[in-house]
């Protein structure tokens, strides 16, 4: 069992690693995460002069370059910003930082490459164990928590039917997330529930959704669009069949993938779906009384304003 109060204190002020996606297509996620932090009085210190973590592409050129890129981000956080917790809302970033942590703790060859590249690049090499990487879900679950949300939101999301979609990189592969699957209070890799818990605390009705950790084909959104469209359409249709009005996301690649291929499925396959797609931080922001524009909802591709007005979330 993990000590909850200890975490609540530790995560109140964390290093924040937005990553490339949150600066670009996933801007709504960045804006809403910062807005929530401000509202809840949580400290976010952006990792200074960060670089890309390697996303899903660099490992295909060489996996150790990805380990180095992620290790440099952690090195910046530890050595420049003096933080020991790095919060990454993007699943890709979160996954890669966790993967680097795992590789540096278990694979001597990775340590060797990271040390060599770090020395040549002129910065201190990151060593396993110097920082803890957490997801935005871990961060909110430990700080404000379900009780805090229940108190602050007064069940504002009541009547909103949500399918919680976690995607691949948050749960797989299991071995890079040693803190998951540790029994009560920890996250599950087969049936993740942190997002469900937070949204339920804000009053939402979570539908039973079988494709929580299905793949959206995000890595091939552009390079193999037909496959991505098929995978996304499956997720959208399953969400609708489960009775969901909105899909809550916690990854910018999944989010953009769902939105883009929702349009593409209609244009190319003639399959129209009406389910909305919002970041879980946007939904929690609405529940906390923050306005849609301040949560970047107008920068999403799909237009969710009708639903937001209908459910009296403004």
């Amino acid at each position: 069992m993990v000590d909850v109060t200890d975490k609540a204190k530790k995560y109140r002020s964390v290093g924040y690693y937005p990553g490339c996606a949150l600066e670009g297509t996933g801007n709504g996620y960045d804006v809403s995460t910062r807005a929530i932090a401000k509202k809840l009085g949580l400290g976010l210190r952006e990792v200074s002069n960060w670089n890309c973590c390697g996303a899903m592409e660099v490992k295909n050129v060489d996996p150790k370059i990805q380990t180095y890129l992620s290790a440099r981000v952690l090195s910046q956080a530890v050595n420049e910003d003096r933080v020991d917790v790095v919060m990454a809302p993007c699943n890709g970033c979160y996954h890669n930082l966790k993967k680097a942590e795992h590789d540096l703790a278990h694979d001597p060859k990775s340590v060797e490459v990271v040390e060599k590249l770090s020395t040549k690049a002129g910065h201190k090499a990151y060593k396993a164990g110097e920082a803890e990487t957490i997801h935005a879900l871990d961060w909110l679950k430990a700080t404000v928590g379900e009780d805090g949300l229940r108190e602050r939101t007064k069940g504002k999301l009541a009547g909103l039917k949500i399918a919680n979609y976690y995607g691949c990189m948050y749960v797989r592969p299991r071995h890079i997330f040693p803190e998951k699957d540790q029994g009560p209070g920890s996250e599950s890799t087969s049936q993740p529930h942190f997002m469900d818990d937070l949204l339920a605390a804000a009053g939402a009705e979570n539908v039973s959704f079988p494709l929580k950790t299905a793949c959206c084909g995000g890595a091939h959104t552009l390079s193999d669009s037909d496959t991505s469209t098929k995978l996304v359409l499956n997720i959208l249709q399953a969400a609708e069949a489960s009775g969901a009005e909105v899909i809550a996301t916690e990854c910018p690649t999944c989010h953009t993938g769902l939105e883009m291929h929702q349009v593409r499925a209609e244009k190319r396959f003639g399959k129209k779906t009406n389910v909305k797609v919002l970041y879980f931080t946007q939904l929690l922001g609405l529940a906390l009384g923050i306005g849609p524009r301040a949560l970047g909802i107008h920068t999403n591709i799909s237009d969710s304003m009708d639903l937001i007005i209908e459910k009296r979330l403004i």
């Binding site: 600066e23 890309c52 295909n60 370059i65």
Partner: peptide, 22 residues
Amino acid sequence: SPSHIFDEEFTHQIVQRGRIED
């Protein structure tokens, strides 16, 4: 493959500048 071309383009931008631009 298209995926190979995408990976190379992506990696090239990171190697050159440390970050990518969508």
